[in-house]
Design a protein around this nucleic acid. Sequence first.
DNA 1: CCGCCAATTGTTATCGATAACATGATACCG
DNA 2: CGGTATCATGTTATCGATAACAATTGGCGG
Lengths: 334, 334
Amino acid sequence: MGARVTMRDVAQAVGMSPMTVSRALRDDRTVNAKTRAKVRQVADDLGYVYDSTAQAFRTQKSGFVAVTLPSVNNANFAETFRALTNGLGESGLQLLLGSTNYRVEREEELVRQLLTRNPEALVLTGGHHTDETRKLVQGRDLPVIEMWDLPTDPLGHVVGFSNSDAMDHIVEHLAQTGRRKLAFVGASEGADMRGAVRRAGAVEAARARGLPAVAMIDAGPAPVSMRHGAAVIETMGREVAQYDALVCVSDPVAFGCLSAVQRMGLSVPDDLAITGFGHFEVAKVSNPRITTVDVQAEDIGRQVVSLLHGIFNEEIDAPVRIDVGSALVVGETS
Amino acid sequence: MGARVTMRDVAQAVGMSPMTVSRALRDDRTVNAKTRAKVRQVADDLGYVYDSTAQAFRTQKSGFVAVTLPSVNNANFAETFRALTNGLGESGLQLLLGSTNYRVEREEELVRQLLTRNPEALVLTGGHHTDETRKLVQGRDLPVIEMWDLPTDPLGHVVGFSNSDAMDHIVEHLAQTGRRKLAFVGASEGADMRGAVRRAGAVEAARARGLPAVAMIDAGPAPVSMRHGAAVIETMGREVAQYDALVCVSDPVAFGCLSAVQRMGLSVPDDLAITGFGHFEVAKVSNPRITTVDVQAEDIGRQVVSLLHGIFNEEIDAPVRIDVGSALVVGETS
DNA sequence: CCGCCAATTGTTATCGATAACATGATACCG
DNA sequence: CGGTATCATGTTATCGATAACAATTGGCGG
């Protein structure tokens, strides 16, 4: 139990040099097949565990891909993360995950920390970063991918969709079905950038179609979820009936609103339309089903994976920009 | 942009030895305050980034805590994970996350991979593991914590609750409110161990109270969620009305069932009671609110953190077993 | 039987930070 | 003013795996 078992120990046990052991364990075909088998056997017997730290140090390849997410407690981000884990795991890469809690300052701190681990690539969620983050990232010869957004001034590669376009789909749909007085339900100004872009998208889309100005319903600081949607509507009470449609920043918020609206005896979509964002499971299962936008979280993850493969195989040099798009999913709440 | 900046480079630039730089950057007070400031300054100017890999290698302390979760796409596990990240982040520890997809074989593979990174502790979700996993873990001088369960034969420390006790609370409540014909809705036999234990708990609790045998409704392979709950009930159709209560393996499944049951015109709880598990947000917001069991996901995370702190400060030697308990939350579906 | 090639194994140096020990400079005491 | 404590910095060796190069063996053609 005392000292750890190293390659040197295994080498001594089989009566060969550490180098041969190193090669054998990596299945190097220049090592005799019998020797390889024997080394494997002895390593197992001794309970040898490979030291990735030492390897990472020596080869200067960490085997890590660093990823930042606003929150892991979000089915969509979790889905993207899953796709990344599975895809990169097959290439022997491990994910180093950090949560920004929807704050760019926290992101900066995280990136600083993640970079000390020598990741082979950095995957950031969103296109808004502090200047310091930009500096940190750009000084290094490190592939960077921003996802879930289409920034105008990208750090490197991009795999995402336009949040404002997606919002435009929603408003277009509402306008076509005769809704005019819209209210946007989202987080307070400030923290959540994607949320802010969606809000702006809704405002602009309404303006472009000659609808009245979009009212703002503040569900509190990001991240906002089901309970915040429900709470803000409960607080408003019947006043909410003055609107034709509640345009929510996400499906969970929409579900909270829906539930609260139903509890006060209003009918959706007869008295009021409600729309969400993200095509979460709850939108498909709720009663009525929520009209939303599918942003293909899993596809984003898969695209990032194949992009990274391209980068590691040196098939890609110039920055790539992939728009995975978004699609309106009409439910029963509009 | 070519070669990376190391401590040696910083040292050369300030005209001191690398050792002094090392000390200065770690805020060692034996280094003159002015020198420290200067070193900091120069390091910044050169764009120096600390190499944690080298540190981990030299000191044999990785700064990692390895964690396995069945899935990150589950609000409860995500919540525990968040608590771990925040709590351990304050001590400068980073989490290495792996998802087992609810399979012990995948867990084994993951543990093997995670161990090569020399984590300072290993946190596993659940108390069921392959023999190989047990061997891997026990051979080493590594703190192990199993969480979300109370295994009878623990690998080390434990922070969890009894899934069968929790299920007993539910069945007790249903029995008291006059429900007799129960059906358990969960994943197929096999993969998800916590689910299996809950099922067994429900069966046993019903038996102990002289209720008829619990029917089994198979919602498909783990992980099961909202849509699986809804789908299986839709497939059953009105047959579901033969039961007094649907005891679901989790809140999302319960919500799916609830939604499907409502769609076919049945009333909950009048025609049928529905219960969930885990006190997910959806249970609080749905309409009606779902009767469930609160398992305090965040508290589990916090307890694990303080346990780890105790271990690292060598205040703890013998294996610790913490039962965070679980509490019935009566909603409107029963 | 010599020489050369292929197959297999070994030797040495190294990645960057830091623990342990050593050294030089300065202050302070009786 | 000698001697010792204190402060500030330097030297050396090291963590484990592996790239680059070196060496040994056996086989086979001529």
